[in-house]
Design a binder for these strands. Structure first.
Length: 935
RNA sequence: GCCCGGGUGGUGGAAUUGGUAGACACGCAGGACUUAAAAUCCUGUGGCCAGUAAUGGCUGUACGGGUUCAACUCCCGUCCCGGGUACCA
């Protein structure tokens, strides 16, 4: 008896999982005779909670795609691994005393077990774990390559530091100025040096200079210091001034940190977006993050009491508005403030600076709209009108962007306008009626007035004219600015990659290749030192491993291991290089990358950066890692609530809750059916509910509901294991796809899962008679059966190529409905369908395939091609236009073979009737479209 | 505030990208089988109206306009929902 029952499903699924493992069915090797396809999932962080139904959504889609591509004859790389370093394991260690290595391994085992249950086709022989020394050895190695390179702006690519040294020896740094324009050589005010200077520098100073160019560099930088976590956070880990994890306050602190000079790549990261297939919103997020703006730097002479400052420089995107400047604003942190403040304003300015310093990041974030500022007593001289423009300082100008100083044009900029109104400063109007006196108009299209040589010009056109003039006079220059900052790369944590450097004196030196990996020392002391140093600082012997040398006490962020793991998959066991060149060239770019949109800025940008650097240094033939990115939507939880009457153990049904004073409580989703609570189960759920009383409506207890994030504390987590236990993995896979479009977020519910289960059962039954006996007939298909088969094959293959898996499932259901109605049990029809179903429901497909008599697995089969000749197209009646003009309308509806000649014949017949016997010269007819006829 | 998405039956969602809106599934209702229930199968199911009926008519894709022979799809305006971002000059 072979019925598609719970027991049979279990037997089948376990059987095939075991066979796949024994035969290593999904093992992949280089094969130059077949086209390759690299299908990648974002590898998970193995959290203690295990997988929930949201995780597999992306994994299932990528698995379907990978399996499909295999059946289409591609050599598919479809690996999985673990992003195993990270803060949660370390915090767990602090709380429970379990070493991160131990808890991480345990979690990974759980993840793998759960993944096995779903029946993924991963090549587990290629698994990587970022915390494995044989892996992070190469993370460290790549870091050294980055440390050992600089960005040649002339060639727009990374080169070796050794090449830079050669340049310095030949010509100093005249053609390659310091990336940081504010940097000056120690003891001087200069930022240029000659060959002779370079040769006179002591080795220590040479290293210091080189550090200014390195793509991974050490510098005192303002970092986001989180006291509560005892660590520094990256910009993208700070949300609204508090830590993304825990929501603790974050303040600025100066620390000597590693950074990656990602800003040098801003333009290439931006340009690269044009050639890769990411969603519009994803590209937009990255563009915003990079934040490119073009404009000009403009120098202003300064008149102060002390007369010491010859000029100040501002950045503006609107040089066309130069004649509308009414005041200047510099950031409070700007060093010029102290130099130009007049005696009369001294007290007020210092009071204001104290106030600004006292304001935490959170305060500033919370009160963005608050207008504060102070006059410095100094004036800038307008380069054309030579009028005196008052210089103010205000926190609305940021020290870290542009030059930290702006020219304020209140009639065109909203913030400048508000500032002017608040401090009652006069406003110059340069755009006539386009400025209403009430609010700024940031238009580019107004006609300029009051603007000397720009009068009468459209603002947009005036920009270039003004910049040209400024450049001629040598008081301004075209300039591009980016919002993006260099990426902080140090973490004061234990559970991460140690930096592969040794310090001699103050300077770090890269470790030699043969000394890698620098292994993370084993310890049980994970407490941060609190002063800003990480737990590794507690290991004095490790830090000071020799009398003259010491190690870095920081570790790298989790982004490091994740920035290149997709390369390691290509050649995971290589101990000579991070991945062999042949494998890198063969597997090349990731063809499809599926994962959550939350990694839009951090992970995806760092991966793109590392690949670009490795490409520049000659290690890779491609410079974008991911050809196509798909963001699967989040699966949210669907929570249920019960309402307890305050102070009692009585619970009121949702419809009646307003009649009482109640408190809502989350209730376990698993003891609620739809909205109806299983009251017996509820009493058993928790001891304090044993004697719960219920106020029912219409004999039922109905729960309240809300869509929320899935989390343990909300009792709305659905574990895929439970679904598999009840319906099997094939049903879970197909149901998750059936839920809706892949990229759309949706709440999890099991409302329709029976429909999918029934579908599989009916599919199974097509191969069996009423008594559960397997049997198919050898007959040839009827035209109807042909049509059903080829229609389905066409739709399925097209939809998979478009990642539209939900419509695939529907198409399968239609197919089974139609074949059931036709009572079709022919091998010629059913066999191709087994192969088509295999990507979605691999277990049942394998079983049916073997029942059909194949000894080789369906894994190795070929996806059936559809044949257009078996498809019937229904044409509809539409107006027919003759010579582009609509002449008449006629209805026809018929099944028409989709064949061009017949279409022509048909169309000409129709037209013949209408155009009074005149035969058409040219007829274009597309089913479902306007029929165009040229007479 | 600004920038992207999106709004279709009781529900999840289809619609060849301008061509019969609501496929498929859930739910619901009715029926068959059964002593009964479960399971399974069949029929119906956007709304309103007419008819004993087969059927026919009107209306309908957030709202208001427009383009078109034809609009869920394109254009203009309005209202909601989701995501990103936040003094970046």
């Amino acid at each position: 008896m072979a019925e598609y029952s719970k027991e049979e499903i279990k037997r089948i699924e376990e059987k095939w999982k075991t066979i796949w493992e024994q035969k290593q069915a999904y093992r992949t090797d280089l094969d130059h005779n077949r086209p390759k396809c690299y299908v990648l999932d974002m590898f998970p962080y193995p959290s203690g909670a295990g997988l929930h139904v949201g995780h597999p959504l992306g994994y299932i889609s990528s698995d379907i795609y990978a399996r499909y591509k295999r059946l289409k004859g591609f050599n598919v790389l479809h690996p999985m691994g673990f992003d195993a370093f990270g803060l949660p394991a370390e915090q767990y260690a602090l709380e429970h005393g379990v070493h991160p290595a131990v808890s991480t391994q345990k979690n990974i085992e759980t993840f793998k077990k759960q993944m096995r249950g779903i029946g993924f086709s991963y090549d587990w022989s290629r698994e990587v774990q970022t915390c494995d020394p044989s892996y992070y050895r190469w993370t460290q190695w790549i870091f050294i390559q980055i440390f050992d390179s600089w960005f040649n702006r002339k060639k727009e690519k990374a080169e070796r530091i050794a090449d830079l040294v050669k340049i310095f020896e030949k010509e100093g740094n005249a053609h390659h100025p310091f990336p940081n324009t504010k940097y000056t050589l120690p003891g001087t005010k200069s930022n240029v040096f000659s060959t002779a200077d370079w040769k006179s520098f002591k080795p220590q100073l040479q290293q210091e200079v080189l550090m200014q160019y390195r793509l991974a560099y050490l510098a005192y930088t303002d970092v986001n210091w989180c006291e509560a976590l005892g660590t520094v956070l990256a910009n993208d880990e700070v949300i609204n001034g508090v830590s993304y994890r825990g929501g603790f306050p974050v303040v600025k602190k100066q620390m000597r940190q590693w950074s990656l000079r990602i800003t040098e790549y801003a333009d290439r990261l931006l340009k690269g977006l044009e050639e890769i297939d990411f969603s519009d919103s994803m590209k937009e997020i990255q563009r915003n993050w990079i934040g490119k703006s073009t404009g000009a730097r403009i120098d202003f002479k300064v008149k102060s009491e002390k007369g010491t400052v010859p000029s100040m420089t501002v950045f503006t995107t609107r040089p066309d508005t130069l004649f509308g400047v009414d005041f200047m604003v510099v950031a409070p942190e700007h060093e010029i403030v102290k130099e130009i403040t007049s005696a009369a304003q001294e007290e007020e300015v210092s009071k204001y600076l104290t106030y600004v310093e006292s304001r935490s990041e959170v305060d500033r974030m919370a009160e963005v709209k608050k207008i504060t500022g102070c006059f410095t007593g100094a004036y800038a001289i307008h380069p054309f009108t030579h009028t005196e423009i008052p210089i103010w300082t205000s926190e609305y100008v940021l020290a870290g962007y542009g030059t930290g100083a702006i020219m304020a044009v209140p009639c065109g900029d909203e913030r400048d306008h508000k500032f002017a109104k608040f401090f009652k400063l006069p406003i110059t109007n340069i755009i006539g009626k386009d400025y209403n006196g009430e609010e700024a108009n940031p238009s580019y299209d107004a006609i300029l007035q009051n603007s000397d040589f720009l009068n009468g010009m459209v603002m947009r056109d005036a920009i270039g004219v003004m910049v040209d003039r400024l450049e001629q006079l040598g008081i301004g220059k075209r300039q591009v600015n980016y919002k993006m900052r260099d990426a902080g790369w140090s973490r004061q944590r234990y559970w991460g990659e140690p930096f592969p450097v040794v310090f001699r004196g103050d300077m770090p030196y890269a470790m030699a290749d043969q000394d890698l990996p620098l292994e993370l020392p084993n310890t049980n002391n994970f407490k941060p030192s609190g002063s800003g140093e990480g737990p590794l600082a507690n290991l004095k012997d490790w830090i000071h491993f020799s009398p003259t040398e010491r190690r870095d006490s920081n570790t790298m962020p989790t982004h490091a291991g994740a920035a290149w793991y997709f390369l390691r998959y290509m050649d995971p066991h290589n101990d000579k290089v991070f991945a062999g060149r042949e494998a890198l060239d063969y597997w090349n770019q990731v063809d499809v990358y599926i994962g959550g949109s939350e990694h839009a800025v951090a992970h995806l940008l760092y991966s793109r950066l590392w690949v670009k650097i490795l490409h520049d240094l000659g290690y890779l033939s491609f410079d974008e890692p991911f050809k196509k990115l798909i963001n699967q939507g989040k699966i949210t939880g669907d929570s249920r609530f019960v309402y307890r009457i305050r102070g009692t153990n009585q619970f009121v049904s949702a419809g009646l809750k307003d009649k009482y004073e109640t408190d809502p409580l989350h209730v376990d989703i698993n003891i609620v059916n739809g909205l109806e609570l299983d009251t017996d189960a509820f009493r058993k759920w928790r001891p304090d509910f044993t004697d719960a009383q219920f106020v029912l409506e219409e004999g039922k207890y109905l729960c309240g509901s809300a869509i929320e994030k899935m989390s343990k504390s909300k009792y709305n987590v659905v574990n895929p294991d439970d679904i598999i236990e009840k319906y099997g993995a094939d049903t879970l896979r197909m149901y998750e796809m059936f839920l809706g479009p892949l990229e759309q977020s949706k709440p999890w519910n099991t409302n329709g899962i029976d429909g999918v289960y029934k579908f599989l059962k009916r599919f199974w039954n097509l191969f069996h008679d009423g008594n559960g006996k397997f049997g198919v007939t050898p007959d040839a298909p009827t035209p109807d059966e042909h049509r059903v088969l080829h229609k389905t094959l066409k739709k399925i293959s097209l939809d998979i190529e478009n990642y539209s898996f939900n419509t695939c499932v529907s198409e399968f259901m239609i197919c089974v409905n139609e074949l059931t109605a036709l009572k079709c049990n022919k091998r010629s029809v059913l066999e191709p369908l087994v192969v088509a179903l295999a990507p979605f429901a691999p277990h049942i497909a394998e079983e049916l395939w073997s029942l059909l008599g194949y000894t080789e697995m369906v894994v190795g089969a070929r996806f059936p091609e559809y044949d257009e000749r078996h498809l019937q197209v229904t044409a509809h009646a539409y107006p027919i236009s003759i010579n582009g003009k609509v002449r008449a309308t006629m209805e026809f509806a018929l099944d028409m073979p989709k064949d061009d000649i017949e279409k022509m014949v048909l169309a000409s017949e129709i037209v013949k009737k209408w155009s009074e016997g005149k035969p058409p010269k040219k007829v274009i007819i597309v089913p479902g479209k306007i029929v165009n006829v040229v007479l």
